[in-house]
Design a protein around this nucleic acid. Sequence first.
DNA 1: ATGGTCGCACCGCGA
Length: 271
Amino acid sequence: MARGSETSNIARMSIAVVTWNVNSIRARQERLLAFLARHSPDVVCLQELKVEDAQFPFEALRAAGYHAVTAGQKTYNGVAILSKEEATDVARGLDDGEDDPQARLILATVRGVRIASAYFPNGGEPESPKYPYKLAWMKRLRAYLDRHVDPASPFLLCGDFNVAPTDLDIKNPEHWRASVLANDEIRAALEHVRAYGLEDVFRKHHPGEAIFSWWDYRMLGFPKNDGLRIDHLYATPSIAARSEQAFVDREERKGKAPSDHAPVFCVFSDG
DNA sequence: ATGGTCGCACCGCGA
């Protein structure tokens, strides 16, 4: 008896969190709605919206059962957090007094978990000015965590980090080793962020497995599985201890008009 | 056959 309520209780015992760089929310709106209907995740951190908040599809997402908080920007960047339960305590940007117009960070609290959706700078070429901006941005992010996040609390740093932490995270490491996604300096910068007190919860569930989240649109990257794992969910110990499984939805990278990034999932038991 | 793509906003730039 009461199978309906049992099912409901089981469903409430976990929280599924996704991070996904959609590469334009307008170009990906139909795929996003289909994705939400297919997986019904509790929280979705989005990056590269490429729209101002006025053009964000709040109504279509609300009709699909999701609240949304956004930090949008025209043409470039832009991040959001979607959630079935309404998020609270929304914060935007690195809050360090720098005059930085790039919308790359939003935080909100959902079901007792503080969640960040972050779009780390790509960095361009090592010689370009975008690369030192990336390094500085990562130091600023660490400083933000030091100032605003309690490492004893449940906190998730989710997003497109634009860093492959190790060679295991790259199909062809020799091709990328000198790049801004994988060189020793950027890996050290990522380690500095991680050392705040975070764990890579995807890697926790897949030690030793070469699984990727991004494939270049060019040069048949996806057909050759010539990918990198640069989209991550990093967790403080109190929430990392509750992680039960993690996976990449490779199906989302197939078919008509996919993003170059696939969604990365982690499922946590409810606190 | 040794290249090969997208999205946005324009005709280049960022990824």
